[in-house]
């Protein structure tokens, strides 16, 4: 019998959560999580934001009882994921994006019904819920089509619906919109927000690559990199942490023998560059400290032989906060240039 959950317990809580993957043949072990402390309250949409290999999916796997932590503690709905895995599974749902999973021989509707039965949802509740979810993911016209005939995007939308079919207390969305078209992703983001607001105490833990998605959806965001939480706050507070001064993007044309580094520009603490091989240029993003003029920076660049092709300034974004905190952008290849 299912145990009564502690209503005051946070939805998710981890303490010094660490996961090390041992490798064979003497290769060095990989530290996927290096002591993660998180506390996610009930009713929150919480984002884990980080580049590839940051530890987001490992964290989700541990919380979903798919993987043991090496050390540390993780609790979901007040239950320990190691000792009380059955209790945890009664209360969670999982959606992983960017994959092709599914029983090819079942139709969309059959698959959703079957998972509702695995969760013990009665037919009386399951059938209208499946109707609604199929409508939300816009698969009504093909709801009786076998999964092996669906496109990747359609499969993803079906998997998204599957995550909601049990109306879980805590829903884990691991890159749920990865590979979806823009319109479908927008509709699903809106549905997640509506689902959380309309049902008291429902919690979503979202991992994403998309800054805008995290910014739009999350009440709080933890920025994670190399297995460590580097910052955790509301998107507004994270943005405020880098406010003051202008955010500048320059497109520069590097000259042979001249490094496109900004480290010699007065007052520029950190910048991030992304090359455009097709144009042969480099986009440099940096924050100009208060009191410093952009004209002075441009003059310094031109004196170093770098031709500035374009200039734009804008409001502080979550990406600015991310770059300041992590030291690079979400793109793996991107590294700090200053």
């Amino acid at each position: 019998m299912s145990r009564t959950p502690d209503a005051s317990a946070p939805a998710v809580e981890t303490r010094a959560l660490r996961r090390v993957f041992k490798t064979s043949r003497g290769a060095p072990e990989t530290v996927a999580l290096a002591g993660v402390d998180l506390r996610i309250e009930r009713g929150e949409v919480f984002g884990l934001l980080g580049p590839n290999g940051a530890g987001k999916t490992t964290c989700i796997k541990i919380l979903n009882t798919l993987l043991f932590p090496s050390t540390g503690e993780a609790r979901v709905a007040g239950f320990d994921v190691v000792k009380d895995a059955r209790e945890v599974r009664e209360r969670i749902g999982l959606v992983s994006g960017g994959e092709n999973s599914g029983y090819g021989i079942l139709t969309i509707r059959e698959c959703l019904w079957m998972f509702s039965q695995f969760y013990g949802v009665s037919d009386r509740i399951a059938k209208p819920r499946i109707d609604e979810l199929i409508r939300v993911v816009d698969l009504q016209a093909i709801q009786h089509t076998r999964i092996n005939r669906l496109s990747t995007g359609q499969r993803q939308r079906m998997n998204f619906a599957r995550g909601f079919v049990s109306d879980p207390e805590i829903l884990f969305l691991d890159e749920p919109t990865l590979g979806m078209d823009v319109n479908a992703a927008r509709l699903l983001r809106e549905y997640v927000l509506r689902w959380v607001r309309e049902r008291a105490g429902r919690t979503v833990l979202l991992t994403t690559h998309y800054m805008a998605e995290a910014d739009q959806m999350c009440d709080r965001i933890a920025i994670i990199d190399r297995g460590q939480v580097l910052a955790c706050d509301t998107p507004a507070a994270l943005r405020r942490s880098v406010q003051g001064g202008q955010h500048v993007e320059l497109e520069v044309l590097p000259r042979e023998g001249v490094s496109p580094s900004l480290d010699e520009l007065d007052g520029v603490a950190l910048a991030w560059g992304a090359p455009h091989p097709e144009r042969g240029t480099l986009t440099l993003k940096f924050r100009l400290p208060e009191g410093q003029t952009l004209g002075e920076s441009l003059r310094q660049l031109e004196q170093r032989g770098l031709a500035v092709q374009g200039v734009s300034t804008r409001e502080t974004s979550l990406e600015d906060a991310f770059i300041r905190i992590v030291g690079r952008g979400l793109d793996d290849a991107a590294e700090p240039v200053a």
């Binding site: 009882t65 798919l66 999973s101 599914g102 695995f118």
Partner: peptide, 11 residues
Amino acid sequence: FETLKYVYTSP
């Protein structure tokens, strides 16, 4: 099917 994880994490 790549569904074992969804079955395993269900109750």
